[in-house]
Design a protein around this nucleic acid. Structure first.
Lengths: 215, 215
DNA sequence: ACCATAAGTCCACAAGTGAGGACTTAGCAA
DNA sequence: TTGCTAAGTCCTCACTTGTGGACTTATGGT
């Protein structure tokens, strides 16, 4: 991009930030193994050797990227399950699922997986567990993460035809119900699920089956 | 392994099978990008060039591996959700989830993803949808696959501490409920969920919350 | 003004990748 | 027994990977 005419201004913090930003993009797009240091350096308009200078190694750079990857990630609470289900199945915001995509595309590499596990449990799963009422909060939050990850995997990475097609909207209530089955405090769940209870996709639970399937 | 003393017996079908078997193992263990043709050839005790001869390319070999990867995969029906939840969270059978592992570890590569999507929708998701009562069977089967994939991902690949620990058993009912929320015909679901209905992990649904959470 | 520190650059290495051409030779049909 | 097809082997190519050493030069403190 920049011709070698100007020998490049020296700005350590800007350089570091540029590398970090380019790395975040490259890793979420191509995964840990798929993204090369040269490619990242080129995108950051920086010499490749600087990655080693600033972050020690590719692995060190990855660890720092992962650490901030889940910051912009959408947060989930039991009350937001309806919106979460919709976002997971129709998702438009390109940055909401960046952390998940980064994880899914880098999961094949065991070292990357270890780095991500630690960071996720500390920065994301813990917050999620705090928002969950009832027992087994940590385990249930892990389950919620699993459901979200699996849905995004099937839709965005595998490219499932049903989930990418227009009929994906019809599945929102089912995904919503599945999320509620794990997230919502069990006693509330039972009450709301009664036929004649709250309808459609609103509120916790509410399996919208009453109308459909009545042949 | 075999010293070059004997120049190797010629047996095309056995050679082909050996390559296929070694490739299946390598791909499920290290993913598409992580497994090299030389490594596969060495494991099959075969010259690397033969892979090109028999399968055209690494991609061709992968496609054939994927085609049979979900054969031994455990099948799911709404009635088996309890066992499925247990298997997903405590899973011992190393071959039951081979197809899923292969998928999860190769998903970062777009070409591999395209191959897998086609094969999964044709060989696995279709069968699963046939077993689902009610509407949106295809979409719901995609959702079920997503939940299973996400759980295995979090437990086996990411290495979630809760899911790998001994407390994972406590989560079976929650996962069971989530699966039922998608798989079981909605009307049956509501009936069974009533407190005082069927208990524990048995039968469809049955969120086992009655005992827990009563402070 | 000077100079030491460190930011940025260039070249190189060793190892690995997937793929293909040219060759030897085993196995089977005549 | 003689060929001929194809199975198996060897070597090579062109390329990419992450990392490191040695270098130049801008920058800020004195």
């Amino acid at each position: 991009m920049s011709p070698d005419s100007t020998p490049k201004r020296r700005d350590p913090v800007a350089t570091r930030a540029a590398i970090l930003s380019a790395a975040r993009k490259a890793f979420t797009e191509h995964g840990y193994d798929g993204a090369g240091v040269r490619e990242i350096a080129r995108a950051a308009d920086v010499d490749a050797r600087l990655i080693g200078k600033y972050f020690g190694s590719k692995e060190g750079l990855f660890a720092e990227v992962v650490e901030v990857a889940f910051e912009k990630s959408m947060m989930m609470t039991p009350e937001l399950n309806a919106e979460a289900a919709r976002a997971l199945l129709t998702g438009d915001d390109p940055h909401a699922s960046d952390g998940m995509l980064l994880t899914l595309r880098s999961i094949a590499n065991p070292r990357a997986a270890a780095i991500m596990r630690a960071s996720i449990e500390r920065n994301y799963q813990a917050r999620l567990a705090d928002a969950l009422p009832g027992t087994d909060a940590t385990g249930r939050s892990a389950l919620l993460i699993a459901i979200c990850a699996g849905t995004l995997l099937n839709r965005l990475l595998l490219g499932s035809t049903v989930l990418t097609g227009p009929d994906a909207e019809d599945l929102i209530p089912y995904l919503h119900a599945a999320l509620d089955a794990v997230a919502v405090a069990p006693d509330e769940q039972v009450v709301d699920r009664r036929p004649g209870g709250r309808d459609g996709t609103a509120g916790p639970a509410g399996t919208p089956q009453a109308a459909a399937r009545r042949e």
